[in-house]
Design a binder for these strands. Structure first.
Length: 267
DNA sequence: AACTTCTCCAACCGCAGCTAT
DNA sequence: GATAGCTGCGGTTGGAGAAGT
């Protein structure tokens, strides 16, 4: 479909934001709230395109952002979530209050990837290097809900996984957080996938994967109590197939968030 | 001190998905 | 159903600063 450029490129600034621009943007959003990014730059008197404003706000100016280094706990969580979700940075970010998808993506590419590689683990498949291809072929046995269950109750995994994949092993110290993910979710393919339908559906998953205090307790922008949302929703699944839960965005029509899982499809 | 290489992260780009008409 | 417009996402890039020679 035809698409007009998101902004009038000839009259927009690019590159690093100045302090003044930041202040304008913050002031405008404080006064009018988020949204309407397309018209925001003009209204706020900024020579930026709406996308740029949104990005700046989301990744840098939002008051609830947590700055500073990632903790080992966060490391561990990111690795585990990546094992399930693949490169779904926004979904992963949703489980780490105060962190942005961009930040997590960068952190993954600069730190975690290297960390996994140094341990002989393929960062994409979360399997030992060299074993990814064959493992992937056999991997469909790893159903999404099982992985999700592993996240929730790591000790409840019936089959003893290879030591390298021990789940929920507390990260002893710097760079020793172990890899917990095991399903291979190739990025780009949407990371989607699903549970084998023979397995029990994720029963009322109360997935609070947030680090630290529960999301409801955190004094961040998430301090607005978030409705309980099943991981299936966050995985892009929609009600009825992999999960019977009815949690969904109230704003969305019905439960249009469902993507049927195909035979052998897995997360 | 000067230069080169490396690392990190903010920002950009293009596309997908959703809604409205 | 087709088209247009907007938002959000994920991959990639460019530049500043750090580290190495």
């Amino acid at each position: 479909m035809g698409r007009s450029p998101c902004c009038e490129k000839a009259h927009t600034n690019k590159g690093a934001w100045t302090k003044e621009e930041d202040e304008r943007l913050v002031a405008y959003i404080r006064a009018h709230g988020e949204g309407c990014w397309r018209s925001l730059p003009k209204a706020a008197g900024l020579l930026r395109c709406g996308k740029s404003c949104r990005l700046r706000w989301m990744n840098y100016l939002r008051p609830d952002l947590k700055r500073g280094n990632f903790t080992d706990e966060e490391d561990e969580l990111i690795i585990r979530l990546h094992g399930i979700l693949g490169n779904k940075w926004s979904l992963i970010a949703g489980q780490l209050p105060g962190r942005t998808d961009n930040e997590i993506k960068n952190y993954w590419n600069t730190h975690i990837k290297r960390k996994l590689l140094s341990r002989g683990i393929d960062p994409q498949t979360h399997r030992p290097l060299g074993a990814a291809a064959t493992a992937d072929a056999a991997a469909p046995g790893v159903a999404a809900h099982r992985v999700a269950a592993a996240l929730l109750h790591p000790t409840a995994i019936p089959a003893s996984p290879p030591a390298k994949f021990a789940v929920n092993k507390p990260a002893p110290a710097e760079s020793s957080s172990d890899d917990g993910g095991r399903s291979s979710t190739s990025s780009g393919s949407g990371g989607g996938g699903g549970a084998s339908t023979a397995e029990p559906r994720c029963p009322d998953l109360n997935l609070d994967l947030s680090v630290g205090p529960s999301a409801a307790d955190t004094p961040t922008s998430h301090s607005q109590p978030r409705p309980p949302v099943c991981l299936c929703y966050r995985l892009g699944l929609r009600a009825g197939e992999a999960c019977g839960c009815q949690a969904d965005k109230p704003s969305q029509k019905g439960f249009g968030y469902f993507r049927p899982l195909e035979q052998g499809q897995y997360i």
